[in-house]
Computed example of a mutant assay.
Amino acid sequence: MWRIVAAVVGLYRMVMDATRELFIRILMGILIFLGYVLLSLFIYAIMRRIMVPQKLHTLPVHLQYTPGCSDIQCPFPQAELILNGGKKLLSSGQYYKILLELEIPETNANQEVGVFMVNLTFHSTDGRYLSSSARPVMIRFKSFLLQILYTLFFAVPLLLGLWEQKQVIELVLFESYYEPYGDGALSALVTVQHHGVQLYSTQLSIEANFSGFTYYLYQWPISMSVIVIISIFVSLCTCTVLMWVSDVVRDYDEQRRAALQRRRMIQARTTGQAAQNGLGTQRRGRGRQQVGSNTALPPALEETTGSEISSEETSTVTGVEDLASEMGRGQSTPPPSITPTEGSVTSSDYSAGFNDVLSSLHTLSRELDGQEVGVANRNIRYRTGH
């Protein structure tokens, strides 16, 4: 019973932990989504603010006349407009179309003036000349009969003040004026180059010429805003995924390098242990080859540890093998006669010990061929004693 209760409690805790983790992930996903949406809107607003300036600027032009002066030496009617006061009107790097709208009454004086020139000049903040344009202006001609018919047809609106006998002329001064970067236009000087011109009002219109991506942003603001915001959102998500993938790949590379280093350390340790085990086996094999103390050996075998085998010692080992093979075939002659003394070994004991040495030499030669580590750490010297 208690086991069932414990299993149910464990399952409940596991489900609650999984639910909590899922809820946290969903909440983080929603927050990241909303954050990316707000960031996309913010980026689009800044981009539109920079790329799409105000389309149209309209400035009234108040011409300054010199009262009672009609001489040619008198200054022409002119007006100066400040373009870069508290707020800069023209955006740097943008092209503009500049028009001057003249409201001219159909008086006999204006009919007699005929053609007159209107000039527009831009100056920078330091008073430097930037650009200038001059265009001719003339009111449209109407014959005497046409004026009578026109007056009779519009008599009622004219009497009620709803209509006026005037002409509105839109004069294009700049088709494509380029506002330079840095020191742009500060002021514009409008000059009417005739003293006898009569005007009701004048205003300067500055219209931006959009092209390329800016044109689409201005002409279709809703569609382009949706497209641009979605593009920015997708770009942000793509950058986030790429950064996450790069982190995962970097962690995987670090783990792989650490595993490879551990594997190399284990292989090096295993190789060292194998070398030590081989050296110990060789030492134990050579220990079994030693002859008992009661046998007098004419050849003496001396082992010296801790030194490396040179080329002379390798040739000595080869000589030992050749001598062992010759003695095994019976080509060796017995040693010279030894006068027995008290406590010495007899000839029969000498022969038996000599045969044991031969077998030991054969065994040693085979082990030297199979164990490179043992050969590298041993120094075998062979000398013949009589």
Rank of each mutant, 00 (worst) to 15 (best):
T240F: 05
I229T: 15
L260H: 11
F213E: 14
R283L: 15
F210W: 03
Y218M: 01
V249F: 09
T281F: 13
I230D: 07
G306R: 07
T281M: 13
V248W: 05
P298Q: 01
A268H: 12
F210S: 01
M243C: 04
E254H: 14
V245R: 09
T281R: 15
Y218Q: 03
P221C: 06
Q219P: 01
D322M: 10
I230R: 02
F210N: 04
V234M: 00
S225C: 14
S225Y: 13
P298V: 02
S311Y: 01
D251A: 09
V228N: 01
R283Y: 12
L323N: 05
G319L: 02
N294G: 08
Y216S: 15
N209C: 03
C237S: 12
D322S: 14
E308Q: 13
D322I: 12
A296R: 04
S246D: 00
L323V: 05
A300I: 15
A258T: 01
E308S: 13
M224F: 07
I227C: 07
R263P: 10
D322G: 11
Q289K: 13
T240C: 14
L242K: 08
S231W: 02
T305Y: 07
P221V: 01
I222A: 12
V226M: 06
F233H: 15
L301A: 10
I232C: 09
R262V: 03
Q282H: 09
Y252D: 06
W220T: 07
A258H: 01
P299H: 09
D247T: 04
D251G: 13
R284S: 00
V226K: 12
L236F: 08
S307E: 13
R250D: 13
R262M: 06
A268F: 12
W244M: 04
I227F: 10
T305S: 03
T270D: 09
S211W: 14
V226Y: 04
T318F: 14
G272T: 06
V228G: 03
Y215D: 01
M224W: 10
S315C: 09
V245K: 00
I266G: 00
E254I: 10
